[in-house]
Simulated assay, not measured.
Amino acid sequence: MSENQKWNLKNEGREWSREEVEEKYFKLCPEKIELIEGKLFWNDEERLAMLAMLLENVGADKAVRLGDKEVWKAAIAKLEEQ
């Protein structure tokens, strides 16, 4: 995932424009889903790109309902400390 990649994450999920499909899906999406040593995709760069693409489509409001909310709060607290 390029450090210069701009993600448009919002609370509500959204559809991509045709330009975003060209920019993200065709350029960043791994060709296939692979499981390597217990992890999806080949490396963290591919995992983060896929996660960001899914978050744009699904939205943060739904994402934070996955797992324990205290984990999300702790992650945000770490981010605010930086």
Rank of each mutant, 00 (worst) to 15 (best):
A49Y: 00
E45D: 13
C29K: 13
E31Q: 15
E37A: 09
E31W: 12
M53Q: 07
D61S: 15
A49E: 02
E46K: 14
K62I: 12
I36S: 04
V58A: 09
M50Q: 08
K39W: 02
E46Y: 04
A49T: 03
L54Y: 11
L55G: 05
L54V: 10
A49P: 01
E46R: 11
D61R: 15
M53H: 10
A52S: 15
L40C: 06
K62F: 11
I33Q: 04
E37P: 03
L51H: 00
A63V: 08
N57A: 14
K39L: 03
L35I: 10
E34L: 05
G38H: 04
N43E: 09
M53E: 03
L51I: 07
L48W: 01
E34F: 00
E34Y: 01
F41I: 02
A52W: 05
A63C: 10
L55Y: 12
I36K: 12
A49N: 04
L48C: 05
A63E: 09
K39D: 04
K39V: 02
L54P: 00
E31I: 14
G38Y: 03
G59K: 08
D44R: 02
A60H: 08
L54S: 07
A52D: 12
F41M: 06
A63G: 08
V58E: 09
L40S: 04
K32Q: 10
E37M: 05
E56K: 03
A49R: 00
D61N: 15
C29E: 14
L35M: 06
A63N: 08
K39H: 10
L51G: 02
E31N: 15
E34K: 06
A52L: 05
I33V: 13
E34Q: 07
L35G: 01
F41H: 09
K62H: 13
F41A: 02
L54N: 06
E31L: 15
C29V: 10
L40M: 05
W42T: 11
K39E: 09
A60M: 14
E37W: 03
E37H: 08
I36F: 08
M53K: 07
K39R: 07
K32Y: 00
A52N: 14
E56L: 05
E37I: 02
A60V: 14
F41W: 13
E56H: 04
G59Q: 11
K32D: 04
N57R: 15
W42C: 07
I33H: 03
N57H: 11
A49M: 00
V58R: 09
L48S: 02
E31G: 15
L48N: 06
F41Q: 01
A63L: 12
L40I: 07
K39N: 07
L55R: 13
A60S: 09
M53I: 14
D44H: 02
C29S: 11
D44A: 07
L35E: 12
D61F: 06
R47Y: 02
G38R: 02
D61W: 07
E45I: 08
L35Q: 05
D61K: 15
L48D: 01
K62D: 14
M50P: 01
K62R: 14
N57V: 13
D61V: 10
L51W: 04
R47M: 01
M50C: 15
K62C: 11
L55V: 11
G59S: 13
